[in-house]
Structures are given as C-alpha cells and as structure tokens.
Amino acid sequence: MKAADEQQLILRVREGDHEAFRLLVERYMKYAYNIAYGFVGDHDDAEDVAQESFVKVYEAIKSFRGDSAFNTWLYRIVTNLSLNRVRQKKISITNMSIIENSATHTGDFFKVHQAEETREIIEKALHELPTLQRAVVILRHINGLSTRQVGEILRCSEGTVKTHLHRGILKMRTKVDFLKDEVV
C-alpha cells in the first residue's frame, strides 16, 4: 500500500468509516499479532493484546498526527500493551519457570533434538532478557523491522538499538549454548 493510500485510509477511519478501519486491521493484524506473541509467548495472550491494540488505535486515531508512520505508531502501542501484559503475568511466570527449570534439567537435558524444543528454549532465553533488550530483539529479529524503525518505536537512537541487540543476543547465547553441538 502506498503511503498516500494509507493516509487516505486513516482519514476515513477518523471520520468513522467502518470499512476503512477493517482494511487497516486486516492489513496489520498479523504483524501486530507476531509482535505481541514475541513478548507474551502465548497465543491466547497474543490474541488479546493484538485485538486490544486495534481497539486503542480506533480510540486514539484522532490524536494520531502522522509524525511517524502509522505502523510505527501501531507497533509502539502493541509493544506497550505487550510489556504491560508481561508485567502483569510476571509473578505467575516466575512460579512457572521454577517448575520448568527443574523439569528441563532432569532426564533428557542433553538430548534436545526437536526444532520444537529449540524453539521453546530460544523463547525462554528471550523472555529472560531485560525489557529493552528483549524488545529490540523481538522487533528486529522476530518481526524483521529495521534497526531504524525499532529505534522509532522505542523512541531511542539506532545506536542504542544496536547496543541492546548486541548485548541481548550474546546474553541469549549463554543460555542456548548447549544446543550448539547437536545443531552442527
């Protein structure tokens, strides 16, 4: 979609055009979902966060001045709501991970073969990162946004994004290191 078309669409949404809003949702729903999923790591929560983000978009579209691209604005909303959700869930997650850890370390700890399990471990390592590092990794590497756009979403410089990426990824490496042998 061209920028001008999107501008037009947003104008229509502001005027209360139902159809335009639906087009906008349909265009971005999967991106929003993937970002939310990256943070919350769960389909039910990702759904809830993604939907809530569009409700917020609808409610706040009048205040959207177009200083940034629409998708940057949307992804910022998704990121904020996701982080809130993660914060809310933090207590139950901490309780969970104690159980998960003990389960992982017994038995087939060294026999991690399935892609499914690799995925779980990566997700877990990701969720253990500090907030900002996790955010940049998710936006950049799971959702494929450019470092510049990630900076715009998180309102920080591209340099900061890269520093967090570098640190976050290396930190993750120490946690997924044992996978190294069987991947080769």
Partner: peptide, 15 residues
C-alpha cells in the same frame, strides 16, 4: 551472535 540470530528463524511467524 550468528548462532543465535540463525536460531531466531525457528520462531518467526506465530501468526
């Protein structure tokens, strides 16, 4: 870095 970045590919598209 490379090792981890490559592994990200297994979780790109939950949608």
């Amino acid at each position: 870095l490379k090792d981890v970045i490559e592994k990200f590919q297994c979780l790109t598209n939950p949608a």
